[in-house]
């Protein structure tokens, strides 16, 4: 019992962080599935969502601020795709990736300008930030809610992709981009929808993430972004359940490593895992057999 109460906090923190990574990872995996693009700016969109929340609560009540954050983040994701990726649709893949790095650089510097480089205190969202006690461990309610919310959102998303028309279009586009365009699928609206879903989930993730780690800095999105990408690769890029499971595994192992007192290596572990996966099983846990992935 003593052992459990000593280690349960790490496990719970791991599950909660894993859930937040999962919400970001879905954005990566969907975009990569369709465009074959590592959207380096995705982590920064997550950061933007945090900053918008910080600033919007100063002018509007909380029940308006949350929908406002979701809408503006979606808008940013949509605009980034339209402005920075769409003009490069026929360009080599590397040009698009460079453009993504450029967007990331732009968003970080914009955030640096707006915040003046100071860490902004994230507002306390009532109810989910309440302190509760689970099995003798005190934690915030968000820690407990996250995994359930993530599973709920993933189920909705999977249903959307399996059952609806736009979902079918997405699956077609990720199988074969050119052919699906020839079959009359409006490829641009499919891609926009992908970015909208991805940004929406990143915004939800940021609401949960910053309730636990309340400092929002311009570079705060970089690390969770990279980790979420690793999670997406680990689970098999293009596969949504894979990304979610990968994210939980990474979140939990990271916190176990922290619990063992190896905090320095908690980030390094993620990348070591990435390299191990890429070398031994480049398709990831649930990836489809690769044709030209590597």
């Amino acid at each position: 019992m003593d052992w459990i109460s000593r280690n349960l906090p790490y496990l719970m923190a791991g599950i909660s962080v894993g859930g937040q990574y999962a919400l970001i990872a879905i954005g990566y995996t969907m975009v990569y599935g369709i465009l074959r693009l590592i959207n380096f700016a995705h982590g920064d969109i997550f950061m933007c969502a945090g900053l918008i929340m910080v600033y919007s609560v100063t002018v509007m009540p909380m029940y308006l601020a949350i929908p406002f954050v979701l809408v503006t983040t979606v808008l940013i994701g949509f605009l980034v795709e339209r402005v920075a990726y769409k003009p490069l649709r026929s360009a080599p893949r590397m040009s698009v990736m460079i453009s993504a790095i450029g967007v990331s650089y732009l968003l970080q510097n914009l955030a640096l300008y707006i915040t003046g480089g100071l860490a902004q205190q994230y507002p306390t969202i009532p109810w989910i930030s309440d302190v509760i006690t689970v099995f003798g461990v005190t934690t915030k309610r968000v820690t407990v809610i996250t995994p359930f919310l993530v599973i709920f959102l993933v189920v909705v998303l999977v249903l959307l992709i399996r059952k609806t028309k736009i979902g079918m279009a997405m699956r077609a586009a990720s199988k074969d981009f050119e052919t699906s365009a020839l079959m009359g699928i409006k490829i641009n609206s499919v891609i926009s929808t992908t970015f909208i879903i991805g940004s929406f989930l990143a915004a939800v993730g940021s609401l949960l993430f910053f309730s636990n780690y309340t400092g929002v800095t311009p570079t705060v999105g970089a690390m969770p972004g990279l980790k979420a990408f690793v999670a997406a690769v680990f689970g098999g890029i293009g596969s949504i359940p894979g990304a979610v499971i990968g994210a939980f595994i990474i979140g939990i192992s990271e916190n176990i490593i922290k619990g063992l007192g190896w905090t320095t290596f908690s980030d390094a572990f993620t990348f070591a895992l990435l390299i191990a996966v890429l070398i031994w099983k480049p398709t990831g846990l649930f990836g489809e057999a690769a044709t030209d992935k590597v």
């Binding site: 074959r36 693009l37 590592i38 893949r93 590397m94 990736m97 990279l226 990408f229 690793v230 690769v233 980030d267 390094a268 993620t270 990348f271 070591a272 990435l274 390299i275 890429l278 070398i279 480049p282 992935k293 590597v294």
Partner: peptide, 16 residues
Amino acid sequence: LKSDYLAIATLGFAEI
């Protein structure tokens, strides 16, 4: 590794 996987892996090693 090739193309973007190489990019991510080298980025990761730099962090390590």
